[in-house]
């Protein structure tokens, strides 16, 4: 029975942080294993195949990016990167290198739990046909299978680029998608740095999907990193 619970590996050098993560995650019916160093973390990730890894980028023995690369070399396990503000570059690099999401220290437990759940849910879906997923949030219904977007029952007309960006965000609903990833996928590698394209499309999307451009709640900007479409089950921020 216990073995069915999702196993989360926490790699962080601060014992106090590991402690509260352990207590909180266990109370939410997760199993938790811990590692204080990158080397130990890699070993446990290999030996015990966790369902999700929480990786602190500031480790004493090795670079968090190195740990991420080593994990990615043999596993597609979802990885949430934990970092402090001021490490935006490292965060984006980690996301582009295969991390699935991130939280910024200090963080509240709810924020972390939302990320963890969203990732695990996405992982569970992965066997289904992801192009067939649909997304609901308040009056908004996005049906990727039918290529349809409805807001309060009315069809929303999107340009192909807007739709492509939205589709990508829906696939990763609840998780951050970096600017580079979006530009690469939608515009192609040659436009990987043309962030103004993205900014225009996102502002149009917000407008058409009834999001408040001053205080967007549906399509959130993660400053310096990318965009996040609020997950269906997340409470509004």
């Amino acid at each position: 029975m216990m073995a069915d619970l999702p196993l989360i590996l926490v790699i962080d050098d601060e014992p106090q942080i590991r402690r509260f993560l352990r207590i909180s995650l266990v109370s939410q019916r997760f199993r938790v294993i811990e590692a204080a160093t990158g080397a130990e973390g890699l070993k446990r990730a290999q030996d015990e195949s966790p369902d999700l890894v929480l990786l602190d980028l500031g480790l004493p023995d090795m670079d968090g990016q190195t740990v991420l690369d080593a994990i990615r070399a043999h596993s597609a396990v979802p990885v949430i990167v934990v970092s402090v503000r001021g490490q935006e570059n490292e965060k984006v690099q980690a996301l582009d290198n295969g991390a699935n999401d991130y939280v910024t220290k200090p963080f509240g437990i709810k924020e972390l739990l939302a990320r963890v759940r969203s990732l695990l849910r996405y992982q569970a879906q992965s066997n289904e046909d992801r192009s067939a997923v649909s997304y609901r949030y308040a009056g908004l219904v996005i049906d990727l299978a039918a290529h349809r977007v409805n807001l309060d029952g009315e069809a929303v007309h999107l340009t192909p680029k807007e739709y492509a960006v939205l589709k990508r965000l829906v696939h990763h609903a609840g998780r951050v998608v970096t600017q580079t990833q979006l530009l690469n996928d939608v515009w192609g590698p040659t436009h990987a740095h043309d962030t103004h394209y993205l900014r225009i499309v996102v502002s149009k999307l917000r407008h058409k999907l009834g999001d408040d451009p001053q205080a967007p709640h549906l399509l959130q900007t993660e400053a310096g990193v990318g965009y996040r479409l609020l997950a269906e089950h997340d409470p509004p921020a």
Binding site: I17, R19, F20, S24, Q28, P106, F107, K110
Partner: peptide, 22 residues
């Protein structure tokens, strides 16, 4: 920030997850 991260994390766990905590 390091102790603050622990304090905020622990305090938010206490507030938000209280029913599930022993």
């Amino acid at each position: 920030r390091t102790p603050l991260a622990s304090i905020i994390g622990s305090a938010s766990s206490l507030r938000d997850l209280s029913p599930q905590l022993s």
